[in-house]
Write a protein that binds this DNA or RNA. Structure first.
Lengths: 220, 220
DNA sequence: AACCGCTTGTGAACGCAGGAACAAAGTCGC
DNA sequence: GCGACTTTGTTCCTGCGTTCACAAGCGGTT
């Protein structure tokens, strides 16, 4: 089977596609049937030309002079992102953040479902969160295998994150979202995407500080 | 006063500097006094040449043939990022995620301190988290003014995030970290940095799916 | 049926980030 | 004191992402 499109979609574009998908779902819920690139770009906070280029990566589905059909475009993006099928995820580290993630309903509507929650603290084990019961760490590998989970989320303290990463990888998990404030070095063939909340705050603070300096210079 | 360095540091570099700062702190705690670019790059998960280029943006502080002095470099980065001075932050939306953020000790050690927690639900008001008492939304503006908070964190449901954003901006907050799954349109002069956990998961899933396709092609 | 306005899709140019290679500089050994 | 080695700082270059601008195409109108 020949793929008519080059299947290499830039990572930056993929991130924006996920945002478009969210906006389109919101529009569809609001009863909109068509939308122009300018309006969609405004709602997503990006440049209209860039949005069109992003969409061109998945074979154009718009109608010139009219715009895009909301439902059709949503389906198309969902298909490319693989969001149609539900993906099994396991979550390790049921602290405050882990609890928040396990309870977050937003994941379910985007094609992700948690199939296992794990924590090292015996006091946590047995607790029920979002319909799942927290399991001990010893059951991690068996659950990953049984559920064929391909995504792992690490919300543990920093000092155990690497060992959790290794265990997840060994059990067959290929993609890991890491909230622990350490840089993980995964085995070959495993992707790690770091999400460091402190880093986000520091970048934000620096940009704000720099903006202040600029403003002071302009007035000077 | 003439600044010897161009103060325009690329945003990508700023994000990495925050990571280097974290690694350096860890090294300093471990008793290390010097570190080479290669070792530091490995610990941060980046290319050594790129790391040296990042560091060159803030005036080189390394010693050729030896490496970087851990404490001095840490101080330097902290100074450039403005992490020496503690910054006042307010947090709106004390759900599961908000509670996790308020309780997260990692922020304190990076120069951020929460000075106000707010929630619209009367049941939440009065609760004590991480040494602070949750306040009603009506007190938002007064607290921002009194504490001169410059950073706001939004962890509310999506439907009220824009109005919270507007109120924060009106009260004087210039930088906002948004965890709500909507694209905010801030007033001029206000920066918003979105952190969408579902988007992160979708990008991760797509990359993993694409990796699977690649592997299948190679075997074919 | 033909025209006109509107919107998409694409081609080109610009700027930026990332990586590799090389020169400068300092330390360790002899 | 001198040479060789190690490591930084810089420069060049390649590739990617983003933006602008224009041609192509469709619907509505006359």
């Amino acid at each position: 089977m020949i793929q008519p499109r080059p299947r290499t979609i830039p990572e930056a574009t993929v991130a924006r596609l996920a945002v478009y998908l969210r906006v389109l779902t919101s529009l569809a819920d609001g009863g909109r049937t068509t939308v122009s690139s300018g309006e969609l770009a405004s709602a997503a906070g990006v440049n209209p030309a860039g949005l069109r280029k992003d969409l061109s990566h998945l074979g154009s589905c718009g109608v010139r002079g009219v715009g895009y059909e909301v439902r059709a475009l949503r389906e198309r993006i969902a298909h490319v992102l693989g969001a149609e099928r539900s993906r099994a995820c396991v979550l390790v580290g049921i602290g405050n953040l882990g609890t928040a993630l396990a309870d977050y309903a937003g994941f379910g509507s985007r094609g992700f479902r948690f199939v296992g929650l794990f924590d090292a603290a015996p006091a946590r084990v047995g607790e029920e969160i979002g319909g799942l019961v927290v399991q001990p760490m010893a059951e991690l590998e068996a659950t990953v295998t049984a559920t064929d989970a391909s995504i792992g989320v690490i919300a543990t303290p920093a000092d155990v994150a690497q060992s959790v990463c290794d265990r997840l990888a060994a059990a067959g998990v290929r993609s890991i979202l890491n909230f622990a404030p350490v840089t993980l070095t995964p085995p070959p063939g495993v992707d790690v995407r770091p999400v460091d909340l402190s880093v986000e705050l520091q970048v934000l603070a620096f940009l704000g500080q720099q903006r202040g300096v600029r403003a002071a210079e302009v007035t000077a």
